[in-house]
Nucleic acid binder design. Sequence first.
DNA 1: GACAATGTTACAGT
DNA 2: CACTGTAACATTGT
Length: 270
Amino acid sequence: MPELPEVQTQVDDLQVLVGKKFLDVRTDSEKIFKMPYKIFVQEIRGLKIKSIKRRAKFLLFFLSKKKILIVHFRMTGHFLIDAEDPYIRATFEFSDGTILHYSDIRKFGCVCLSEVDTYEKKYGFDKLGVEPLEDEFTFDKFKEIIKGHKGTVKPFLLSQKFIAGIGNIYADESAFIAGIHPLAKLDKLPLKKQEALYNAIRESLTRGVENRGTTIGEYVDTKGERGKNQYSLFAYKRKGLPCLKCGTEMQRIVVVQRGTTFCDKCQKMY
DNA sequence: GACAATGTTACAGT
DNA sequence: CACTGTAACATTGT
């Protein structure tokens, strides 16, 4: 699934598009455009890409004329440059001939065009939590965020309004690395475990980025190449396999409708 | 042909 | 009202 590391990998790859000008767009799946497709094409033609950034799991293309292209991959979306697969839903052509494909098996992803001045309010970017790999996400900041938080660890990690960019893979990994049960109550965690969780979040996400993402289903980079982080996972999708720390069989439960894998012995409730 | 996969949002409940 | 938890939705491969 595209989470922070996968989206970051794509954004890094997409930097080759900065400075290019949109010439045309084609699609056979108009529904992924969150506005009338014809208007979208009309508006984006001739606009130039000034910069490409990531916020949470969103890709933000800052364009000329104060426009912004916002893309979310949801479960199975990704971009391809000079590469193809059977699930291309939209194709962007640039004035220099460069071709950018948007591929998405499930078609849950979305693409829309907005205004630089208003998109944050319009799409709720102002409600997103802190970026976990930025310098501002210190342990002090983390303690502040969890202060008075009554909920449990996994739903907290998945919610985008406290910390942005974590999904099912990195939530399970973070809880495992910290040695905390996914259903442990946040306000019951001793200080040392809070610190362990903070470090685990940074560690799992950083490793994910270094490994260019986790490819278990379909995620690939813009060249269609697989990530390598699936070889470094401790918990995600390891149900029934021996825990890599203690050898105990890994358990699977469902939390907020997400499959959740953990080690009963290594991950405690406190 | 039922089901599993999951990020987001709308909504119910406290 | 702020916060937490749950259900529904998008679609397709197995």
